[in-house]
Computed example of a mutant assay.
Amino acid sequence: MFHKLGLTAAAVGLVLVAGCSTPAPAQSQQAPSQPSASSAAPATSAAPQSSPAQPAGDSAIDDFVAKVGNGLDGVKSYHLKMSMSSAGQQMTFEGDVDAADPKHPNQHLSMDLGKMTIEMITIGKDSYMKGLLGSGWVKVSEDVASQTTTAEIDQSKWLAQNKDAFKKVENLGTESVGGANTTHYRLTLDAAALKDLGSDAGASGEVAYDAWLDDSGLMRKAVFDLNTGKAPLKMEVLLTKVNEPVTIKPPAKFTTMG
């Protein structure tokens, strides 16, 4: 699942996000390098042809995980958009990522947490935040940055870790997502067997994980619906503008965290 866009308090599944302990919300200002919003809504072709479900045996899972992992090859930039609802709270995340250096990606993300709006710019090892520590831009320490937001789209590790939870894999046919040709897969998982939900989650029954992979195996869209347990969670992630030019710049004015 777009396994982490961890925000100040991590979480689970598709993007690992949970609650957030932060100061009172500050008014958002215009960022100096505002990420371009993705205008392309995921388009769906009419009535895709479904193929029979495959038992989630080792080979079926391994093939799917390998396909997802290989899909990351050659990805240098992208636009990420995520929406999440949990316990009556709606959150959205959106921004551009320059992943030419995958170990230190440059990114500009905006996060609407309902009662608070936060922006974060990361360039190499330098990170700047606005909205979390006040209304202006603040250059934060690596420790603070590491606990806040990182966009990571490698789902192969999460899939492999939760391999035992897979019950079946279905190919639901081809669809267009954000202008890209994709194949729609539906994975059915055992909620109780998901390793990163925690023993107190109380989740049980089947969980649907829908993934749209393009011809290279890159996951262009994913929807995770955990509708059981103590904290039902639904996430949708959309990846667009893959390998299109993107420029991430530091804010023109900022203070340094003391």
Rank of each mutant, 00 (worst) to 15 (best):
H3C: 09
G6F: 08
L7R: 03
L7K: 05
A10W: 04
V12D: 13
V12W: 10
L16S: 12
A18M: 02
C20P: 00
P23A: 07
A31W: 10
P35M: 06
S38E: 13
T44C: 03
A46W: 01
P48S: 10
Q49H: 09
P52R: 11
A56E: 11
A56D: 11
A66T: 14
K67F: 01
V68F: 08
N70V: 03
L72Y: 07
S77L: 08
H79A: 11
M82T: 14
S83F: 02
Q89P: 00
E94G: 15
V97C: 03
D101K: 13
P102S: 09
Q107N: 06
S110N: 13
M111H: 05
G124I: 02
D126K: 10
G131H: 06
G134H: 08
S141W: 07
D143I: 12
A145C: 00
T148H: 06
A151Y: 04
I153W: 03
D154T: 02
S156E: 11
S156Q: 04
K157R: 14
N162C: 09
K163I: 03
K168R: 15
L172M: 12
S176N: 14
G178Y: 03
G178A: 03
A180M: 08
R186F: 00
L187F: 03
T188C: 05
L189P: 07
D190K: 06
L194Y: 04
K195G: 00
D196Y: 01
G202M: 05
A203S: 11
E206V: 01
A208P: 05
A208Q: 15
A208R: 14
D210G: 04
R220V: 09
K221Y: 06
A222W: 00
A222L: 05
V223Y: 06
D225A: 14
T228G: 05
T228E: 04
K230M: 07
L233D: 09
E236V: 13
V237T: 14
L239I: 15
K241R: 15
V246S: 05
T247C: 02
I248F: 04
P250G: 04
P251F: 05
A252M: 06
T255P: 05
G258P: 15
